[in-house]
Design a protein around this nucleic acid. Sequence first.
DNA 1: TAGATTTGTGTAATCGATTACATTAATTTA
DNA 2: TAAATTAATGTAATCGATTACACAAATCTA
Lengths: 343, 343
Amino acid sequence: MGEKVTIYDIAKKLNITAATVSRALNNNPKIKASTRELVIETAAKMNYKPNKLALALKSGKSNNVGVIVPRIDSNFFGSTIRGIEEVLYPHGYHVIICQTHEEEKLEIENINTLLNAQVDGILMSISNAEIDKDHIINRVLKKNVPLIFFDRKKNIDGVSTVTINDFEAGYKVTKHLIDQGCKRIAHLSGDKSMEIYKDRCLGYKQALLDNGFEFDKNYIIQTKSKVEEGRKAVKKLLKMKNPPDAIFSASDFVALGAIQELKSKGIKIPEEFCVAGFSNEPFTRFMELSITSVDQFPLEMGKMAAKVFLEQVKDSGKVKIEKKVVLTPKLHIRKSTLRKNNA
Amino acid sequence: MGEKVTIYDIAKKLNITAATVSRALNNNPKIKASTRELVIETAAKMNYKPNKLALALKSGKSNNVGVIVPRIDSNFFGSTIRGIEEVLYPHGYHVIICQTHEEEKLEIENINTLLNAQVDGILMSISNAEIDKDHIINRVLKKNVPLIFFDRKKNIDGVSTVTINDFEAGYKVTKHLIDQGCKRIAHLSGDKSMEIYKDRCLGYKQALLDNGFEFDKNYIIQTKSKVEEGRKAVKKLLKMKNPPDAIFSASDFVALGAIQELKSKGIKIPEEFCVAGFSNEPFTRFMELSITSVDQFPLEMGKMAAKVFLEQVKDSGKVKIEKKVVLTPKLHIRKSTLRKNNA
DNA sequence: TAGATTTGTGTAATCGATTACATTAATTTA
DNA sequence: TAAATTAATGTAATCGATTACACAAATCTA
């Protein structure tokens, strides 16, 4: 019933002490071969399994790492978590998932409860880079718990980061639109308090400037990552005196909404208007009018974050390392921006 | 630096024992009010946080639950996990994620490591219902660890399940296709070793029979949930002497592939051919030719599974309960099957 | 005012492992 | 063959909490 076999049960059965059992099971060379074998055999027979909690308490290592993301039911975060898990599982780590729903309060609460649960590391996508989180971050660092930001980072000493080059991505998309002959390129940005959106926007600006385009700040509209926001934005843009003929959206969902709205107005894509998104959501390639988008390699990003964590664990105690890994984004050019005469 | 504050540190500072500190922090009424306040105050000042591992070891409750799914980077499982997390987090539970990639070996390994980690419960989507898993399942049950299957279940005594009525879903879709005037309805099924696919197929059959259609087993093609498989299946079906004029696919991805192939052959959807999918993946409603599909309410399913777990924990020790929760699927009728003359 | 209660804390065992430090028995050395 | 090694195992502390039991001081009872 209870079926809780401990080393003491094995010890009792064999008339030896728990210490000997422990040593035998850990292949301590001081133990006589015959004893070792007997113990191992008996342990197997009794279906003994070590209690990870006891080990964790004793060693101070829980073999759990916390992963904090805004949400997991999105392709991007789901894939990063998959990558993290794939790398860490073979090393004996378990992944504890926490969602913040972009809420500041939950973010801090999550870190706290993860620390109390004695996780061996925290991998997170921080939501708002402007709000001061130094206090809680310091708690993590003081405890010497490796902390790694992925995708949504904030520059903090001692914190490693794994990101893609959002600036480059923004630049590439914009340059591509320019190459397709677009003259007035608008940008549907995201929450500017996040570095990723800031950087994408900066890349956009730089590409414009480098190519002799003038930058009009009215062409930048802040949106939340929702289809409806794309429709709204297009309505607004089309009312302008000098409406754009292309959109670089920092979100695939917003790009989708934009496309829907443009189509409903009878505007032809990509002939009259080009639209590019961001994140390479599955639907962007499934659509009949497939959508040009940026691949952020979420799986790779997750794997990389996990690897950085493993390195930090290995080297802990030695020099404090701080890695900044930047992945190169890949632009998938699809129908929504590909004009045939240019192909 | 180390910043590890324990109740002993607090005790030392106040010249009392750890027992008193523990009691004060736990609002034990035997403790003098003044002492309690002093302790609580000092604990806050020293930034004391209880060590969850120690608590877990003592109490035998880790406050962790394991969730085992084939993968997390899918809309369906991502959403169920989100639901689980949302319900359990407020109750102080953490969710440990494990992926099986449909591999038998990993499934068993995951259960084992979760048990060794002393999880308080396991919620899982079992991959293959035909392979005998009694041994490992028994280990869970013997340990009195609540076990709940969601979506992909297997009928086992003592195991609660939360599923949707896949039979009904299959029936509804097929009936809908019949109502739209389709005469020869094919079914693209999934791995028949899973109950969900078996049931969807049974619902399909029953609907055919109930409506005076004859059932042709050549109209059933087994597929894996991939776009390419849908294309292949359609190629095969169209080569038949008496090709179908509708497809009920047990997967949205397969349905998508089918649609792509049909279109490439110049077949008009839904006028000449209707296609319905399953799972209500986001892309099904985003497509220009939106795809009829079945909503499995993954978020609700996750929440429900978590609630069943909570009930079992509460009632543990009392009668052993075994809940079978069946959610009703919802058919979203979209362009891919909606013939205007029928609307 | 002696005995019974109550109040507030301390002592020590416990959860299940690991491990530094004995300790005993066996073997080697001189 | 006595002393020195070595081999194999036992004893007990430890990780950080909780809690049954013990106990002294304060308060109540008759």
